[in-house]
């Protein structure tokens, strides 16, 4: 019993880190462009600056090395063989693949699909929530603790981060 309980917690911990690594691999360039040092600096409702850690130091190191490998691979296999006129003299073509290297063109970098719909569970009454300034957020004032909802992820992301909503896999 004791061993199996330890194995369960170990599985949760390992799977948690593995899921995060999978996401980092999928969108490494985008995460680096958003969080160059792995952290996001924002103001909370009381207008105090808060630091939110999105990448741990080890994950940041992994992300940097993975992005470096990816950029090298892209340069060697694709960009190196592109006609020079596409890269330098035709900005109107909107390709600008060279800029992939200096992280200026988010259009060329895959982003996480935050506009998907997710199942979630209310962890507190919606009527007690403080407005976080998100205009896309649905009106949760009628929803109580334990209610299940289906909503766009980007609309409720801040509530998930502040632990007012729990996602259901």
């Amino acid at each position: 019993m004791y061993q199996s309980e330890v194995d369960r917690v170990k599985y949760v911990l390992v799977d948690y880190l593995r899921v995060r690594l999978r996401k980092i691999e999928r969108n490494a360039l985008w995460y680096l462009s958003q969080f160059p040092d792995g952290k996001e600096y924002r103001n909370n409702a009381q207008d105090e600056s808060v630091t939110v850690t999105f990448l741990s130091p080890k994950e940041l190191k992994f992300c940097l090395s993975y992005a470096k490998l990816l950029r090298t691979h892209m340069n060697e296999t694709v960009l190196k063989h592109m006609p020079s006129k596409l890269l330098d003299n035709k900005p109107e073509l909107d390709l600008n693949l060279q800029k992939l290297d200096d992280m200026q063109t988010a259009r060329m970098i895959d982003q996480p699909k935050d506009d998907t719909y997710v199942l979630a569970k209310m962890r507190s009454n919606g009527s007690q929530w403080v407005d976080n300034g998100n205009k896309d957020e649905p009106d949760f004032s009628d929803y109580r603790t334990g209610h299940m909802i289906l909503a766009r992820y980007d609309a409720i992301k801040e509530r998930v981060i502040s632990k007012e909503i729990e996602l259901v896999p």
Partner: peptide, 15 residues
């Protein structure tokens, strides 16, 4: 873990 599995993008981590 549950939130991370269900969300499409990275969530903050408590190191």
């Amino acid at each position: 873990w549950v939130n991370e599995v269900a969300s499409p993008s990275l969530l903050p981590i408590d190191v």
